[in-house]
């Protein structure tokens, strides 16, 4: 399911990151890539703040919808 569907406090494993090359490179640099755990810190509509290995990332709806997470909890 999409990252954007998670609620505050949810912790899931990243499955796929669908974004342009530049964005994907940035996300990898800060540690967001398939296989790592993400935690939802805050949500404003579908824009959200997430935590990946202690890095806090703010992202808009488009990106949050393009990242998928696996169903099971971390």
């Amino acid at each position: 399911m999409a990252l954007s569907e998670l609620n505050i406090g949810d912790v899931k494993i990243v499955d796929k990151v669908g974004a342009d090359v530049k964005t994907q490179r940035f996300l990898q640099n800060v540690g967001l890539m398939p296989g790592v755990g993400v935690r939802v810190v805050a949500k404003v509509g579908k824009n959200m703040i997430i935590s990946v290995k202690n890095t806090r990332l703010a992202m808009d709806k488009t990106l949050a919808e393009a990242i998928t997470v696996t169903e099971e909890e971390e």
Partner: peptide, 10 residues
């Protein structure tokens, strides 16, 4: 505009 993603500092 490119997708918005920004690192938030503590």
């Amino acid at each position: 505009p490119a997708p918005f993603v920004l690192e938030l500092s503590q």
